[in-house]
């Protein structure tokens, strides 16, 4: 059974076909890289998988369960987590609060209007633990506004990991990072255990290629090439897509 099955997915905005008949499968534990030039429809594909966009046709299955009609806010409860290419965090709050919100999102406690959130020992401990995993435990109480860009990238990942996902979708986790910060994030991604399947969009080939086991190349919303790292790199169509213009 695949971790993620995307079958014949289509989406268009007006007359613009941004996703055309996209079909692929990701095996459990796999590290999949999705590449393609700007406008290839990579982020749209993520938004379709997470349900933020509704496909015109096609289906999506998570570990064999059809989730095409599942509302997007239910999907994290089924073990799907994502990060954003453009950082979307809670700017007025501390790092700890950001991660706490991620944890809270999956518990029924999120509906509770009566208890004091700061006094929920278990929640706070879990949040600290999630921050330890990404090396931010020391600055847990720091307001997000006072953190560096690299730290925010790690908060993004910490929030996704805190939800203990089975499938993790990373949208350009290296975007905008310095060389050193990139190494930090790379090492962080390496520590993620194999029971988490990862699908990653990335432009930065030197870090991403090393991480990926299989690669899917998208172009104008279509899957052009799919295969192992070596196969895709060697394929003439890859060269054509990237150098043809």
């Amino acid at each position: 059974m695949s971790a993620l099955t995307v079958n014949n997915l289509r989406k268009s905005f007006g007359g613009l076909h941004v996703t055309r008949n996209v079909t692929f499968e990701v095996a459990p534990g796999e590290r999949r890289l999705i590449i393609g030039p700007n406008g290839a429809g990579k982020t749209t594909l993520f938004n379709l998988i997470t349900g933020e966009l509704t496909p015109d046709s096609g289906s999506i299955a998570l570990f064999g369960e059809d989730i095409t009609r599942v509302p997007s806010c239910r999907r994290p409860h089924l073990g799907m987590a994502r990060t954003y290419q453009i950082i979307t965090l809670f700017p007025h709050d501390t790092i700890l609060h950001n991660v706490s919100l991620a944890l809270l999102g999956l518990t029924p406690m999120r509906w509770n209007p009566l208890i004091n959130m700061r006094r929920q020992r278990h929640l706070q401990e879990q949040a600290h633990e999630a921050l330890r995993r990404v090396g931010l435990a020391d600055i847990a109480e720091r307001p997000l506004a006072q953190t560096s860009y690299g730290e925010r990238r790690r908060v993004e990942i910490a929030m996704a990991l805190a939800q203990n996902p089975r499938l993790l979708l990373l949208d350009e986790p290296f975007a905008g990072l310095s060389i050193d910060e990139r190494q930090d994030v790379r090492q962080l991604l390496m520590t993620i255990p194999r029971d988490v399947t990862i699908v990653m969009i990335e432009h930065n080939m030197d870090v991403a290629l090393e991480f990926a086991e299989r690669i899917t190349l998208l172009h104008f919303g279509e899957v052009i090439v799919e295969g192992t790292r070596a196969e895709v790199v060697a394929d003439p169509r890859t060269r054509e897509v990237y150098l043809g213009h």
């Binding site: 933020e52 997007s72 994502r82 965090l89 809670f90 919100l101 509906w111 209007p113 959130m117």
Partner: peptide, 22 residues
């Protein structure tokens, strides 16, 4: 101070992210 209150403020600041967090 409650979780629901925190969630409400979350939907004010980042509704899309809140949705993606469940």
């Amino acid at each position: 101070r409650s979780p629901l209150g925190a969630a409400l403020m979350g939907t004010r600041d980042q509704p899309r992210r809140m949705n993606a967090l469940g």
